[in-house]
Amino acid sequence: MGFSTVDRVKTAFFRRHSDGGGPILLDRRRIYLLPTAAGLLYAVMLLTMLLAAINYNLALGHLLVFLLLALGLNTMLHSFRNLHRLRLTPGRCAPAFAGESVHFPLWIEADDDEPRLALEVSSAGQLLLRLEQCPTGGDWLMLPIGSQVRGWLPLPRLKLGSRYPLGLFIAWSNLQPEMRALIYPAPRHTPLPPPRENTGEQGSGDDGLDDFAGFRDRQPADSPRHVAWRASSRQVDERPLLVKQFAGGSHPEYLFDWNDCLPADDETRLSQLCGWVLAADAAGNRYGLRLPNRIIDCDRGSEHRQRCLEALALYPAGSA
């Protein structure tokens, strides 16, 4: 992204450095205030009215112009006060898959009892969220940010602005809380590679009918043999087929190897691995990962899944 000169000047003029991970209190040094286009129009209108009042010698015309002018100046203060002493505290951001939108949580709270109205959070000129009123007890702002690529997604620079009360002025503050979200690769659903043949797998590849644990939606990686055809036929609409799920015992164990992937670029391989991890995890199977820089032993559970996805997200970094 090439910044234009204007952008560079803006960067130099308005604060662009990070605000760290702590709470941000909006004080007078952080709040900017400018008339909006409507505000400028209002000013031009007042000037025209003043000229008319002078020309026709209308005492009440003067009074009206001054009332509107004073009102405009008063709303300038109110615009400022609407943001003043708001406190924003970054929260923890849940990971997401590339292509999904991440919701960055930001706790917003006012330091006093004054109502804060019509708050708009935007980033790069795009409105993310509008909060009609900040509740006195505070509230979570869940800022939706689109993710494109895997890895760490930092929260982009935010602008918290408001045109309250009359839309003649816009008050805003630039926020750069230090928040980032981990973005996993976008999963790519392909059939699972053959399970690993080791002691963990007792019977044949077939599922014994030992501990039936219910149904779940079929994923592309599931073998057609696992589909519960009868159960699926009871569903009318176009839901995915159901797959029988079994608990305990005899599950296949997989070691997803970088080299087993389709011969393609790294990102495609990571996506495929991610899809496998999800499929195996959903089936409750044990699985492991072999990346060029790192091996994760077979295991299961949400913690394990998270470790694997993290390794995929941060590849090639994070070898340990």
Partner: peptide, 21 residues
Amino acid sequence: LGMQAMPLTLVLFLLFPRISG
């Protein structure tokens, strides 16, 4: 908002230089 603007209105009304004619 209007009431808070009143004192300023009054000051402007009294002090803004009037141009006649």
